[in-house]
């Protein structure tokens, strides 16, 4: 599989574009409903889905060689590192008892 020779039909781009618009609408709609902690989970899930659509089709990673896949995966992995290590802080903080408490 080589990037140079793959021609993506226009209808694929338009379909992905429509999906992105739909997911943007979904993000807005979910934000108007109080789902507690699920609001964040859904928002991040929708965002990640949109990222995948852009990376795979708009950026042609779907049709690229393994090296490109490796670098794209590295980007995602680094994002996981950022979130993961930040959470090691947030999830293990001692409760704040106030000054002198």
């Amino acid at each position: 599989m080589s990037t140079e020779h793959h021609v993506t039909p226009l209808r694929v781009y338009f379909t992905v574009f429509a999906l992105l618009l739909g997911l943007t609408f979904l993000t807005w709609w979910v934000a108007t409903i109080d789902l507690g902690a699920w609001n964040t989970t859904i928002a991040i899930s929708v965002a990640m889905t949109k990222v995948m659509l852009v990376v795979l089709w708009f950026m042609h990673v779907k049709y690229s060689n393994k090296l490109i896949w490796f670098f794209a995966a590295a980007g995602v992995y680094w994002l996981v590192l950022l979130f993961g290590f930040v959470m090691t802080d947030y999830l293990t903080r001692l409760p704040v008892t106030g000054w002198g408490g």
Partner: peptide, 11 residues
């Protein structure tokens, strides 16, 4: 900074 001391230990 106020970062968790457990995170501090890992870092």
């Amino acid at each position: 900074s106020g970062q968790s001391m457990y995170a501090g230990f890992v870092f």
